[in-house]
């Protein structure tokens, strides 16, 4: 995945010693480094000792049963326990195996964790990371594929992070763990294994609220969320052969959102497409487009477009599921239509 431009940019910033790692290994590195750095950091969640997707693999062996806590299948308890532990000075990293499972814990996540600082008049630090995994593409049908980032982005008090590369996964998770707010940290099911790149062995973090320009171009801006960055880059490569240069922006964090980078890009390209896996209706695309319209209306040469999952649950059938996820062909067609 990805072009070489931005990888080189990272390499300049980072230490010279690199290691080829997958997205899940990068997350594992971040957890290990932060747990070594701060004894208040601990992990809890279902089957995290064995680790279904490898993110917490080996941590139990290094940090033991009081820092790597396998819980019952009790999402409300996981979320509430993370919150309670934070209130007495710990820095929990709670895992929800699938984002769908967070629906079982919405009271603790949205009624409690998100609001507590405000309700307490600011007199609380809530350094909690709620890690989870979203996205479709593995025939998991409707309940194990949801991308619910906007549910959480809608709740003041939560930050929402969506890394698309191993480098970002590591740097953003370290930032999330050091942040004093509840962070919804969304990982992607397919990227765990498919995304691989050179990641510095040395310490680095990535600040929240700084989008990455994955490819520069002057004809159209494509904002992609998480795995849709891949789709956008593939579409951009295809369009380039037809002489169309797309600028691809990866917001990396939805809350806080780096609107400046997106607006600056649209002021240059005059066209905007937002691509995400979440359903189209009331999705992040709606918010991003509304913000761009408010801030760069006079620069727009065409109505901004959304490419997203249709407003249906994810089907099981492989062909139907494929149809439900934004595709390279859809993005290419949308760009061509915007420019025609």
């Amino acid at each position: 995945m990805g072009g070489h431009e931005w990888r080189n940019e990272y390499a300049k910033k980072a230490a010279s010693v690199m290691s080829e790692v997958s997205y899940s290994q990068a997350l594992n590195m971040a957890l290990r480094e932060e747990m070594r750095r701060d004894p208040r950091v601990f992990c809890l969640g279902e089957d995290i000792k064995e680790s279904t997707y490898g993110v917490t693999r080996g941590l139990y062996e290094e940090f033991g049963p009081r820092r790597v806590i396998g819980t019952p299948i009790s999402e409300t308890a996981i979320a509430g326990a993370a919150l309670g532990a934070a209130l007495v000075g710990m820095r929990p990293v709670a895992e929800f195996m699938y984002m769908t499972f967070m629906m079982s814990a919405m009271d603790q996540l949205v009624n409690q964790a998100a609001k507590m600082k405000y309700m307490f008049g600011g007199r609380a630090l809530l350094p909690i990371v709620f890690r989870t995994m979203a996205g479709a593409g593995r025939s998991n049908a409707a309940q194990h594929t949801q991308s619910l980032e906007t549910w959480f982005a809608h709740a003041p008090g939560l930050k929402v992070v969506m890394p698309s590369t191993p480098y970002d996964a590591k740097g953003l998770l370290k930032t999330a763990i050091r942040d004093d707010n509840p962070v919804i940290f969304i990982e992607n099911k397919l990227l765990y294994a498919t995304a691989k790149e050179q990641v510095p062995v040395a310490e680095y973090t990535i600040p929240f609220g700084q989008a990455a320009v994955r490819r520069t171009g002057e004809h159209v801006t494509i904002v992609g969320l998480q795995r849709m960055v891949e789709i956008a880059l593939a579409a951009a490569a295809e369009l380039a052969s037809a002489g169309i240069e797309a600028e691809v922006i990866d917001p990396r964090t939805l809350v806080p959102l780096d609107l400046d980078t997106i607006v600056a890009s649209v002021q240059k390209t005059h066209r905007l497409i937002v691509v995400h896996e979440a359903h189209e209706r009331m999705g992040a695309g709606a918010e991003i487009i509304a913000q761009v319209v408010a801030h760069a209306f006079d620069y727009l040469d065409a109505p901004p477009q959304r490419i997203a999952n249709p407003n249906v649950p994810t089907p099981f059938n492989r062909m139907l599921e494929e149809l439900s996820i934004p595709s390279v062909a859809q993005v290419v067609a949308a760009v061509q239509s915007l420019l025609s």
Binding site: F42, L83, L87
Partner: peptide, 18 residues
Amino acid sequence: IVAAGIPIATGAALGFWI
């Protein structure tokens, strides 16, 4: 929220236990 304090107290106890 009724009962919401139960998991939160569990979490505080978890912090002490860790």
